[in-house]
Amino acid sequence: MELLSLSLGAYYGDFTLAAASEHLTASQGKALTVLRRGPVAMRALAEIMACDASNVTGIIDRLEKRGLVRREPSASDRRVTNLVITPAGEQLTDAIRAKMHATHEGLSRLSDEEQAQLGTLLNRVFTPR
């Protein structure tokens, strides 16, 4: 548990610095990272980010103003607003990831096989059954 905690702390610090270099808060960067996986409803994003829905509204307002995300009505439920990352948001997410030098340096110490094994193990630990 201690090593996992230290690893996540180092990753979060690296991510926060990289996001700041692109004039984003860590929360804005995290929102983009989540949306990179696909459209997400506002309420679901709040749950994923473990924050109040009103906080997500402010985060998304700022990202939308920069053209990094857009809101779309859900095709199945007009009461639901989905959030979608734009191509500019995808490019910015790539730029943040590229600037995470400490994380890349640490992962480069692992072989390709070890990196794949780490991904498999983390998926087993963090994917609900």
Rank of each mutant, 00 (worst) to 15 (best):
51 C>R: 14
12 Y>E: 13
17 L>M: 03
82 N>K: 04
61 D>A: 04
16 T>L: 10
62 R>H: 12
108 S>T: 01
75 A>H: 07
93 T>Y: 02
47 E>W: 06
86 T>R: 05
87 P>Q: 12
24 L>H: 07
63 L>I: 01
34 V>P: 01
65 K>F: 08
14 D>C: 08
10 A>H: 02
126 F>A: 10
51 C>F: 09
13 G>D: 15
71 R>Y: 07
65 K>W: 06
106 G>T: 10
36 R>G: 04
118 L>E: 09
46 A>C: 11
25 T>F: 03
90 E>S: 08
86 T>P: 00
110 L>D: 02
98 A>T: 09
61 D>I: 00
4 L>W: 10
20 A>D: 12
98 A>K: 09
61 D>P: 00
53 A>H: 08
81 T>L: 15
50 A>R: 10
85 I>C: 01
10 A>S: 08
45 L>K: 06
54 S>T: 09
119 G>S: 14
46 A>M: 10
93 T>D: 02
107 L>Q: 02
14 D>E: 13
82 N>P: 00
24 L>Y: 06
27 S>G: 10
74 S>V: 08
13 G>S: 11
107 L>A: 05
35 L>T: 09
100 M>Q: 11
107 L>Y: 02
77 D>S: 01
97 R>A: 11
97 R>G: 06
70 R>K: 12
94 D>R: 14
32 L>N: 13
73 P>K: 07
35 L>R: 00
25 T>I: 05
126 F>Q: 02
18 A>S: 11
32 L>T: 07
69 V>R: 05
19 A>D: 03
21 S>H: 07
115 Q>H: 01
26 A>P: 02
63 L>P: 08
20 A>K: 15
113 E>H: 07
19 A>N: 05
78 R>C: 11
42 M>L: 13
23 H>L: 12
92 L>S: 05
3 L>D: 00
129 R>I: 14
102 A>F: 02
3 L>C: 01
91 Q>T: 00
87 P>H: 09
125 V>Q: 14
118 L>G: 05
31 A>M: 09
48 I>W: 10
51 C>A: 15
30 K>T: 12
101 H>G: 07
3 L>F: 01
87 P>G: 12
46 A>K: 08
117 Q>I: 09
23 H>Y: 04
16 T>S: 15
66 R>S: 10
27 S>V: 03
4 L>Q: 06
118 L>Y: 13
73 P>G: 04
102 A>N: 08
